[in-house]
Every structure is written in C-alpha cells, then in structure tokens.
Write a protein that binds this DNA or RNA. Sequence first.
DNA 1: GATAGAGCTTCCCGTCACTGGAGGGTCAAG
DNA 2: CTTGACCCTCCAGTGACGGGAAGCTCTATC
Lengths: 137, 137
Amino acid sequence: MNIAGAAARTGLPPKTIRYYEDIGLVRPDRSANGYRDFGGPDLHKLAFLARARSLGFTIEDCRALLALYEDRQRTSADVKRVAEEHLARIDRKLAELESMRQALGRLVERCQGDERPECPIIDDLAGGSPAAERPAA
Amino acid sequence: MNIAGAAARTGLPPKTIRYYEDIGLVRPDRSANGYRDFGGPDLHKLAFLARARSLGFTIEDCRALLALYEDRQRTSADVKRVAEEHLARIDRKLAELESMRQALGRLVERCQGDERPECPIIDDLAGGSPAAERPAA
DNA sequence: GATAGAGCTTCCCGTCACTGGAGGGTCAAG
DNA sequence: CTTGACCCTCCAGTGACGGGAAGCTCTATC
C-alpha cells in the first residue's frame, strides 16, 4: 500500500508518516519504483502511533510504547509507568493553564471593553498592584 | 543598568532579554563599551513582557499589547479583544488536555501495573475496541 | 603592570513535531 | 503523447528560547 493509502487508513498526513520513517518509528518496504510499501504491521504501528500521539504522548514516549507493544516480555508495570509519567505532565500543564485562565479571566471580567483607554488588563501587565491583585504571583 | 541587573529586576534570563531585543520588543541603549544599558522604560517593558508571557500570551500578542500599552489613544476594547482571543485559546487547550487526561486516566486506572504483559493501555493504543471503549473518538 | 575571573558581546546550532515547498521521477487515463 | 496525480528527496521554517564557542571588557588582587 502506498503512502496515501496508509495516510487514509491511519489519519496521519503523508508528511508525518515520512517523518516517522526518518526517525525510525516505522520501516516500510520499498517497491521497485522506490515508493514506500506499507504492509499490515506497518499500518498497525502507524495507527498505534496516531492514537498515542492523540493522547499527547511525546515521540520518545511513542518509541518506548511501540517497543513495549512488540515486546512479549513486557510487564504492564512498564507500560503503566510511561503512562503515569505522561499523566503527571498533563496534570502539571493543566494546573498551569488553569492558573492562567483564572488570572486572565478575572482581568477580562473587570475590563469594560469600551472606547476609553483605562484598562485593568494593561494595568496588571504594567505592574498595577504588584502584590494585591496577584496574590502568590 | 547592565543585562544581568535587568535580568535580576525582571526575572527574565539574559538570553531571553537579548532575544527580545533581536525581535524588536525592546531597544536598550548601548554604553561606550558596547554593553546594553537598560533604562527605566526598558525595565518597565521587560517586566510587562515577563508578566504577559507568564499569562501565556504569545510573543506577537505581547508586541500588540506593548503597542497598546504605549498608545494613549488605545481603547480598552482593543486590549480586551486580544485578551479574549487568548482566553479562547487557553480554553481550547484546556478542553484538549482534559479530554486527554480523562482518556488516559481511565486506561491507567484499569492497568494492573504488575509483572504480567496484559495491559489495557497497550490494548487501547493497538486499537483495542475501536468504538466501544473510546466513545466519540 | 600582570593576571585571573566574572561579565559582556555576537553567532550558530539544537529543541519538538512536524509543515511547506522546490525540483524531479513515476504511473494511469485519455 | 500529454496531462495530472502520485511519489521521491532535500532544505528551510515554525515558537520561544537555551547551550555553548570565540572573543572583548571590567574589576580585584598581587
């Protein structure tokens, strides 16, 4: 199966599939004309990668997970450890974004959004009330 | 004030301050020896940038916000629009991360994390139950 | 005055996970 | 035989810096 077929089956863009080959995540055969030829196992790996990436795993996580996927000696503890580390990264990022969302949301609420120049958002950025309105900043 | 002083005052690393000059966000004077010399307005701008970046604004947002900061003809509506667009970006990212967190969290919960190879996480990535366990994927 | 060490400068490369585009070969249909 | 849709490789750019090399300047000490 050509790259466009593999792309259609996995939802990954052809460019991404080529990139995954570049970095050694898949090794499709080559047809006589030099075209990549994806077999069943390649398609499974690509689908695996697409799913893992959609869960936010990094490429290196994906590499490790693929290796575990193909390792019959793996333990579920190995897999769980990778997933839990990623979960922790997600939680840290969520906390960061939620804190931003809260701070920015408060400022936006207080901004009149009219034709006048006075603006609590700009005031805050400019250092407005350096310790009062931004507790524990 | 030298770059190390500016860094200490604003919390920004010297590298970042040089980068901000490179891309035209600040234009500190130069001393006779070629060293950057940050004055009061430069320090204010850098602090403004540090605060805006900590709220997750992109560099281009920061450029726009700095321009509004210095524009006496600005309206608070201009500022609010930039902030609301960023808020929307944050909310989209939060929704994405929360969806990842939920999907991954369910898988991790169901994984025994023992010495056996059976693992719902790997099974899911490998396409486990393509429509059952991942509703609306 | 010599020297050591810290601090400053510029410049270039690397990050992460792709994406876009140039330049060129291959294939199927009409 | 040409057209258009594929495919290939290689290079450059993204965002927002960080690391590190090579070299100049300042300050303190001897």
